[in-house]
């Protein structure tokens, strides 16, 4: 049972962080299909810092530096989307898809290059960070780490930024009705950049949280196994609102955790459902939600539409 809750919370934190990232991007008017790729790069940034810091580094420094590295890597990677979608009015779905493919391929290339440089007989895409990973744990022996309180803080912060600040009000106006925003002197391009870059920060962090959950090494060839897409589902299920996203993340995290540990529960074992069913459920639920509530869609109205100063 404790194992289930541990996993649920770990997965939920990942999903929530990444979905919040997507939420910022979409509220500014840019669809971010590339969250998966952003996560991979964030994970890569964090993992590289963790594996290169000398053994004696204090836990606090490890935690801070790896988080910063993950966020920075995500941020830089998300620039790919920002430049293409905002400046060049590229098809956001196309660019997002490219970013997902590039995320895994690029990260694998980088890790393999580093590994082979160190040892030509090690052409693997795995980074180990056993020592550094311990620094994250809050309670010895359990998978409760620093990320969970951090995720909680970021959740509250996201809500405050979106609904209580001038920045949030302006950004959401750009995702809903950019012409209206521009007519009162708001710079739509800047706000959209901000939205996409924040999604890079949070997505990158989410990637780091994901690869430190329960394991102490990561094989980058595997990417992040669809968590970026699952986060998109969380965002849709959470109706683009931070607290609903948090609840959706807990629910989806629960299913995900069940698929890992359901054999530990007698009544679930007797149901004899394959683990894939639990993996599938979040997607099926989101799809049903989309079908049922497509009428009053909570999605930002102008998302996916490049902003052109000429149209009024």
């Amino acid at each position: 049972m404790i194992l289930l809750i541990q996993y649920m919370i770990v997965f939920a934190s990942v999903l929530m962080l990444v979905a919040l990232g997507g939420c910022f991007s979409e509220h500014s008017g840019v669809i971010n299909i590339g969250l998966e790729g952003i996560m991979v790069f964030g994970a890569l940034g964090g993992a590289l810092v963790m594996s290169t810091l000398p053994a004696g580094t204090s836990g606090f420094v490890i935690v801070i530096l790896s988080i910063l590295a993950a966020m920075a890597a995500g941020l830089i990677y998300s620039l790919l989307l920002a430049v293409a979608a905002i400046n060049f009015k590229a098809d956001q779905t196309l660019v997002g898809t490219a970013m997902n493919l590039l995320g895994t391929a690029g990260a694998t290339v980088i890790v393999k290059a580093i590994n082979t440089k160190a040892n030509p007989d090690n052409p693997s895409s795995t980074i180990q960070y056993i020592g550094a990973k311990k620094a994250f744990l809050l309670v010895e022996g359990y998978e409760f780490n620093w990320f969970m309180p951090l995720a909680l803080c970021l959740l509250i912060l996201s809500w405050v930024i979106l609904y209580k600040t001038r920045f949030g009000l302006r950004m959401m106006a750009c995702g809903e009705h950019p012409q209206a925003a521009a007519s009162v002197g708001i710079n739509v391009f800047k706000m959209r950049y901000a939205g996409v870059l924040i999604s890079g920060l949070l997505g990158g962090l989410g990637g780091l949280v994901y690869i430190t959950a329960g394991v102490s090494e990561w094989k980058f060839e595997n990417g992040v196994a669809g968590f970026g897409f699952l986060a998109l589902a969380v965002m849709i299920f959470g109706e683009w609102k931070p607290f609903k996203i948090a609840l959706a993340a807990l629910l989806f995290g629960f299913f995900r955790a069940l698929s890992n540990v359901y054999t530990g529960f007698d009544f679930l074992r007797t149901l004899n459902l394959p683990s894939t069913v639990y993996n599938m459920l979040p997607y099926i639920i989101s799809l049903i939600v989309l079908v049922l509530f497509s009428g009053n869609n909570a999605a930002p109205k102008a998302e996916g539409i490049p902003y052109d100063q000429g149209t009024r």
Binding site: L80, T97, A98, L102, A105, G106
Partner: peptide
């Protein structure tokens, strides 16, 4: 794979 994903990315332009 990296090159081909970059090519998709540039197709956006």
């Amino acid at each position: 794979s990296m090159i081909s994903s970059l090519i998709i990315y540039f197709c956006g332009f």
